[in-house]
Design a protein around this nucleic acid. Structure first.
Lengths: 167, 167
DNA sequence: ATAAACTTTCAGTAACTATTGAAAGTTTAG
DNA sequence: CTAAACTTTCAATAGTTACTGAAAGTTTAT
């Protein structure tokens, strides 16, 4: 297999995976491109490699910066901005975990805590409801803790802690 | 807070979380509804509770059946089909993990294994590419193993195994 | 067989999300 | 200050995904 094909296939595949990680396709593709690049790339480079418009490139680069998985680089003596990505996969996974925890898990935890306050009127329906909410809350809290630990962890420390936390 | 409000809020919230788990919104809402219901519900019940069309209800129920997180129930002497959901959150999480592993992780692993075969022509570009692919592959394989173990595990066994596996 | 009760399909449409590209804005060099 | 080099915004549009509801299909009881 030739390098160029391989590169394209990887970018494609990473795009799809990134999508299922909660990034969008282009975001993930830009990330993949930066990840396998030996040097930082400019907006123009990215536009050209992925055949996307300036606006699209700019928007998604900003989103990646926002997620803190891509960083701005200034090359001395050059006006243009360059970007490079986090290349440590572990760090990347941690960052994504943190973001998703904030964006997805925290909101539902808030709801679970609040609906937990529902008045029990003694009917089966509210009893069952309370029971399910309790279990969901328990599960969501465990997941939250896990993701939090993961987000803050060193690779080795993390795995050695998982056990202790969930007992 | 009244039961009805609480119920609606929970269904809403679960819909959103389900979405970020890779289900779609309606799918997750139907699931939430079944999860807090004391008895199995028919397609009509679901249509009415969620204000959705017959086609939509049918389609998403089938998807849930396909994911094996909702089951068909026949009530003796009744023609209508009823549905109930997996109420054990752990079982649910396992099931979702399995599905996503199949649908998302396996495809990229296949790509990573295949692009790994790229010819190294000695340039920095291909060297970096190979290096990144190797790391991605390693990470993806670890995740795959983890999800697989998770999917097959009992809750307690799982956590006690995590450590051993990732060493 | 046939009619009622129910389930599934699918073409059309609505709702949502991503993308473009040109215009506006910003920064820097001279 | 002005012009060039660059970045950001945003209204228009393309593309995608979800939903509807009526029609077709299936099953069961008689």
């Amino acid at each position: 297999m030739k390098y160029k094909e391989a590169k394209e296939e990887l970018i494609q595949a990473w795009g799809n995976l990134g999508y299922s990680w909660g990034l969008n396709k282009t975001m993930a593709q830009i990330h993949a491109l930066l990840m396998i690049s030996t040097k930082p790339l400019s907006t123009e480079d990215i536009m050209e490699e992925l055949n996307i418009s300036r606006g699209n490139a700019n928007m998604n680069i900003r989103a990646l910066l926002d997620w803190q998985i891509v960083f701005r680089i200034s090359v001395p003596g050059e006006r243009k901005e360059y970007f490079k990505s986090e290349k440590d996969i572990w760090a990347l996974a941690r960052q994504v975990a943190q973001e998703r925890r904030k964006r997805e898990l925290e909101p539902i935890l808030k709801v679970l805590r609040s609906v937990n306050e529902v008045q029990t009127d003694g009917t089966d329906e509210t009893k069952e409801f309370k029971k399910m909410v309790k279990e969901l809350k328990n599960f969501a809290e465990k997941s939250d803790n896990l993701l939090d630990a993961f987000g803050k962890s060193e690779e080795n420390w993390f795995w050695s802690t998982v056990l202790r936390m969930f007992k």
